[in-house]
Write a protein that binds this DNA or RNA. Structure first.
Length: 263
DNA sequence: ATCGGTACCTGCACGC
DNA sequence: TGCGTGCAGGTACCGA
């Protein structure tokens, strides 16, 4: 579910935890820990104070007074401040008052504790809202892959997922199958600005709630009302009226206007 | 080094 | 009502 705007919204909504101390931690799903031991993690977290919260692409890095807790929401992960626990509540952090729940029906997300900043974060590309155009452009050069696949690659830039890739390509007028390395500089520039525009608007809208995404306070986003391509297969293009088409790129559905978006 | 394909899970909507 | 199919915001890993 969550891409950069959703993760940013979640990260902001758990900001009230900064300064609070973890009284107890419980992990009920081994898969979620990616090899970590539930009891050792719980022991390491008990007594720790939240020092800060940072987002890296789709990852949330919670700084503790000793070590880091890295959270990825996968497709269906949620962080919730309090609220009822369900059959997919896989982790619970208890504070002196209140709690933070991790809920994830598909179990594609992960939570990892480490003393140092996890190495995975160092391999990610730059933040799309901070990268310069020259760097963004340079990263597309000599790439033989399709532009849609490149946008989804977190080592290219971090945080873009299926929705915002489609929305950005639509606004830039670029076909998802266009080869990244062959795009002219001015077309890459349009894409660069489209990515920033779409992500900025989506953050302002609190993200996209397609089926069940909500922030830690249970609030849904409304950027789905602004989608022009994603999920609009068969509906008229808002620019030219041509029906939006869907095809598979990198095994992900891609929605685009066959008339407005050129290869 | 890069690329495409597959695996990992559960839930839901759909047609029969 | 049940059953099979396809689809879903994600990444990691494999072989070519």
């Amino acid at each position: 579910m969550p891409e950069l705007p959703e993760v940013e919204t979640v990260a902001r909504s758990i900001a009230p935890l900064v300064g609070r101390r973890i009284v107890a931690a419980e992990f009920r799903c081994r898969r979620l820990l990616r090899g970590g031991d539930p009891n050792r993690m719980a022991a390491a977290l008990a007594g720790r104070q939240i020092a800060g919260i940072q987002r890296f692409g789709k990852f949330i890095l919670i700084h503790l007074d000793r070590g880091y807790l890295m959270v990825h929401l996968g497709m269906t992960g949620r962080l919730l401040l309090g609220g009822p626990q369900g059959k997919h509540t896989h982790a619970v952090l208890t504070f002196d008052s209140g709690s933070l729940l991790y809920d994830d029906s598909r179990q594609f997300g992960c939570i990892q504790y480490s003393v140092r900043v996890p190495k995975r974060l160092a391999r990610l590309g730059p933040e799309p809202l901070e990268v310069s155009f020259e760097d963004f452009y340079a990263r597309t050069r000599r790439r033989k892959t399709k532009i849609k696949a490149l946008l989804l690659n977190q080592d290219f830039v971090r945080g873009i997922g299926n929705i915002y890739a489609d929305e950005s390509l639509f606004r830039a007028g670029i076909h998802p199958l266009a080869l990244a390395g062959r795009l002219k500089k001015e077309r890459v520039r349009r894409l660069y600005h489209a990515v920033q525009e779409v992500l900025t608007e989506a953050i302002e809208a609190g993200g996209s709630s397609i089926s069940d995404y909500v922030d830690a306070e249970g609030r849904a986003g409304w950027f789905q009302m602004r989608h022009r391509a994603y999920g609009r297969t068969g509906e008229p293009c808002l620019t030219c009226g041509t029906p939006i088409r869907r095809l598979l790129v990198a095994q992900r559905s891609s929605h685009f206007c066959p008339k407005c978006q050129k290869r």
